[in-house]
Design a protein around this nucleic acid. Structure first.
Lengths: 200, 200, 200, 200
DNA sequence: AATGAATGAGGTTTCATTCAT
DNA sequence: TATGAATGAAACCTCATTCAT
């Protein structure tokens, strides 16, 4: 009878430790030994639950994204249209420590994605899903009459995604200049634009 | 007398090779051996011209930035206000292979900057200078009567910088979706916003 | 459970191999690869048991000194005064292969100590402890009435230490001239001096 | 017509620089580049005047010894017997900075000599010559009636050489304990012994 | 399941030495 | 004569990975 160990939970624990390492020391500084130390287990354990380093890293990213999506779902639950979009944007920008950590990790993968096609495809899918959720909110807001009717809501959703990406990068690079206040006002100003009547 | 070699030019050649390696293989994949191979010299030569790997990497980034600034200056020469800003934005976005390479390298350093304070400070300075140039263009455009007078042009310049950063990231991650056409239309639409009258 | 290996013993084995290398090939010739070969293990194993080369070297010196002290204690056990001192001097001088090896290693560290303050301090402590043991023997010999009462036994102990150091150096440099017989007669003559009455 | 450069003087200058490097940074730290820097010439110049590193090192040692002998000759000029011996011992012990430097270098070579037979033979010759000079002084002192007549003056000369070697080592390792005053008193006490009548 | 011993590839860096100018 | 560019060997060290227990 094998010792009762929740395999899945153990994997998650190690992946979480790896995510912490990546956020603190970067993808390169995150060695198997460091992951093991962070997780408080022996070096071999990590290899026991994951075939190799790449798997650990992949699991870490996966976990970060899953947690992010869960949080977004929770914070937008019951909301629709502009309110949902506002909540979504507040969720995506690095307004707290958790989100900052998630973005640090995401940025590490972006720099890899610029080089590695497989990683790039994963990030493309993530971006597409994010755009889609923005689009749904925009369309709902239009239906609700909260914002002016736009010719191409998809384009607005796309632009919105890029602005958020840039804002997150800025907040990581210069947290004092692109402060929490700035980020929140950025969301407000951006959404305000959508409510105004189009100019002739 | 020593062999006739332009020391400075030779350094620049190696730094350029290093930049190419970073863009193709990432910061981690850019080993001294790879740099030497790319530059077509022996491994020891790289150490002859640079004290260590960090110096090569630093020189590569420096060179990328210097070349970018030279190109921006050239493309905005003789222009002012909105025209200068438009040229500047077209220069910063990855619309051609050179600019794409520069952004790949920049992204590598951003992921390092999220962790290393020294790198972060350098990038903060770069972002600040970029914002400043946008601001100058905006103020000139206001004086020229090309755009509506804004309450806070500094904020607009800042937002603009973030949008460009996000667009560049997007273009690296999904060059097909965030295509050259899309990026150009993004610039146009963004600048068009500035020319419209403020809503009541 | 891990492979059954006595960690401490394994470290000691490698340190002993390193000591052998130092005695045979000098501090500079003792590379990690050479140590590994001498110890009959792979290069990485040495790094597994020691953080870096310095630690191996340090452990080797430590071991040599510990073994020397153990041998001295054993050979002077039960002895006191002049007999203990004689045994001690016979133990310190390179009269056999083991002691010769120890002195070769010591000499390597002396040449480093002449330059590096940290190493120098270690050797100073070793010299001080040796002088102290000589002094204890001399004082016991005085109490036993074996030797004439000296005004400054501390000075005699110090002189004795220097003479032994010089004799050891000589024996390393010219083992034929400063032969085993010569070294033994040196001890005898030196101790004989102590038994004689002071001259008026 | 070649530029007028005193080949011999240039070699001596570089050898002197090398000697300084050895005394300051040890044999291992004395790289060709460091020697060149110390000498204020280019790296290639050193190789131009010496076939390889070993030759530079050898020349440095040679120079140190030649200078030492010149100094000893000068300080013992016109002296004989005990006075000459006293002057000789004061010259050999590291009582000033120059002599300390010479001993640092000597110690480096001793640690090499313990391993390398060729170096060992050189040092053996040096020790033999030193013993011989001590012996000459002792015999003269006996003839002058300055010291008691000894059965084996050669043995006393040998012992004296070892004591000086040990004292020099001690002074390098712990210059505060084996101070200038201590070294001078050591010489005085040692020579005093020789003047006393042998005990029955 | 868990540990950590063992391996070897590969990275950075230092260095003696050769050689073109 | 003099310079420093160029090379390649070898040093230390890190790390992912395999494996015996």
């Amino acid at each position: 009878m094998p010792r009762q160990v929740d395999h899945h939970e153990r994997r998650a624990m190690i992946a979480a430790a790896a995510a912490g390492c990546i956020a603190e020391q970067g993808l390169h500084g995150t060695t198997m030994r460091v992951i093991a130390q962070c997780a408080g287990v022996s070096k071999g354990i990590v290899e026991h639950y994951f075939a190799n380093k790449d798997e650990v890293i992949e699991a870490a990213l996966e976990q970060v994204n899953v947690r992010y999506l869960a949080r977004e779902r929770k914070l937008t639950a019951g909301l629709t249209g502009l309110a949902a979009l506002r909540a979504r944007l507040r969720c995506v920008l690095p307004l707290d420590a958790d989100s900052r950590q998630a973005w640090k990790i995401r940025l590490c993968f972006w720099s890899v994605a610029a080089i590695d096609p497989a990683t790039r495809r994963e990030q493309q899918a993530r971006l597409a899903l994010t755009r889609e959720r923005y689009l749904q909110d925009l369309q709902a807001a239009q239906r609700n009459g909260e914002i002016r009717v736009m010719a191409e809501p998809g384009q607005v959703a796309t632009d919105l995604g890029l602005l958020m990406a840039g804002a997150a990068c800025g907040a990581l690079l210069d947290p004092e200049y692109y402060s929490r206040d700035y980020l929140e006002s950025l969301i407000d100003r951006t959404l305000d634009h959508l409510t105004r009547e189009p100019q002739p």
